[in-house]
Design a protein around this nucleic acid. Structure first.
Lengths: 227, 227
DNA sequence: CTATCATTCAAACGTTCGTTTGAAAGGATT
DNA sequence: AATCCTTTCAAACGAACGTTTGAATGATAG
């Protein structure tokens, strides 16, 4: 009778998830302890195990709360654009924006904790713990397939394995951008104030990714060199 | 008398560093315990504290052993290309290759643990622990300034803040590519076998990054749309 | 041979971890 | 008013953590 996933959450569960989101982002999954976390949430220590079962299950719940709706939104946005195009193939730029839009809009949600979550998410892609990567992987699986098919339609001349690589690069660019904190800037001169304006950031990211996706083939360059 | 950084390491220290590199990569900095780590290295539990002082100091030593020489190599490669160009400005592609070459060559070092380290490094950029990010940040500081100046010379027409963003994106692409494991592929269809051929990977990465760096300005796109 | 030094080792230190327990509290239904 | 079920709570559980200690070991120099 595990109906918990279906029915809406009570206040305690929400408070735990919010606090967990913040603590996991600040200290990592192992670094954030149940005691700190429950104290921050203002609930009893045992509440996590009662409502979620274990710390690992809590981690999964933290991701599931935001990531599942986010990927639904991504696919919906993609299909909206496809419907609007009425059969004509989408541009790569449009597909890219359909994918990154949802995550970037979440950055602006400072109050609701969305921004906190995007940073956490950016890090989770490369988390050392295998279960976490697997969890993320399976949550993205259907959306990834869907978008890959869309790219194939948009760029039929691009070899499949090259496309896979470039999707990989694009994903890395997005993940790193989401994970980056205001506090540390590897490159001096970055302005923190416009860092999280979603519209500007979407334009910048889409321009970079789209150009990278349309890059001349590396193999072609090699042949030119050899010839 | 802290001459330890200068003089060559003994076998025990090397074994600890090798084991730490592997354990930190597999389980994270908090997840890898001193007991597991020293057992893997075949040394006594107290050896880490004796030779390095603390676990945190060990983490720093793990990075310093590889990252310092790597950034020296990067700058040397950049200056080699600049000397070769005899005053003519370098192409952005050449600068990019000077930067990513060192990390990609390390990927092929399966025996010496270089490949292990690159994965660890890719993750460290976005580690939740602030001291670690600061450590990485200061280790990259001089190289980053140097490469930024090189990019400014190569693309004088590109606005500075746009360049900073695109360097940020490029760094993310590289970091994510380094951190990615064989086990998890978000995008189905990737071929693991050619994943770590450094020459091919350098071509692919350089093509993507270079195109992204030369992308038309996002602002210009916006104006076009509005007009 | 002896003294000196750096290194290794087993054992223990106090702390913190995730989880479990059983009682207390609260609200809804009969 | 009495019953049942969910939720909260303080306390304790055993295990694992990073670090420290003091004795044993081994090589080097006087």
């Amino acid at each position: 009778m595990n109906l918990r996933a279906i029915k809406p959450m009570n206040e305690t569960q929400t408070r735990i998830l919010d606090a967990a989101e913040e603590q996991f982002m600040q200290h990592g999954f192992e670094g954030a302890s149940m005691r700190m976390l429950t104290a921050k949430a203002g609930v009893n220590l045992a509440a996590v195990n009662y409502h979620f079962g274990s710390k690992d299950a809590l981690i999964e719940a933290v991701f599931r709360r935001r990531l599942d709706p986010m990927n639904v939104e991504r696919i919906a946005e993609l299909e909206r654009r496809e419907k609007e195009a009425e059969g004509r193939p989408l541009t790569a730029d449009a597909i890219i924006r359909a994918f990154i839009g949802a995550s970037l809009r979440m950055i602006e949600d400072t109050r609701g904790g969305g921004r906190t979550f995007t940073r956490l998410l950016g890090r989770a892609y490369t988390d050392p713990a295998k279960p976490i990567r697997q969890l993320i992987g399976q949550m993205y699986a259907t959306a990834m397939e869907r978008f890959k098919a869309a790219f194939v339609r948009a760029l039929p001349e691009l070899p499949k394995d090259e496309l896979v690589w470039r999707m990989h690069f694009m994903f890395g660019t997005l993940a790193y951008t989401l994970a980056a904190t205001d506090t540390v800037q590897l490159i001096a001169g970055a302005k923190p104030e416009d860092r999280y304006d979603a519209r500007v950031l979407e334009d910048r990211l889409a321009a970079f990714m789209s150009a990278g996706l349309h890059a001349p083939l590396a193999g072609a360059i090699h042949v030119k060199k050899a010839a």
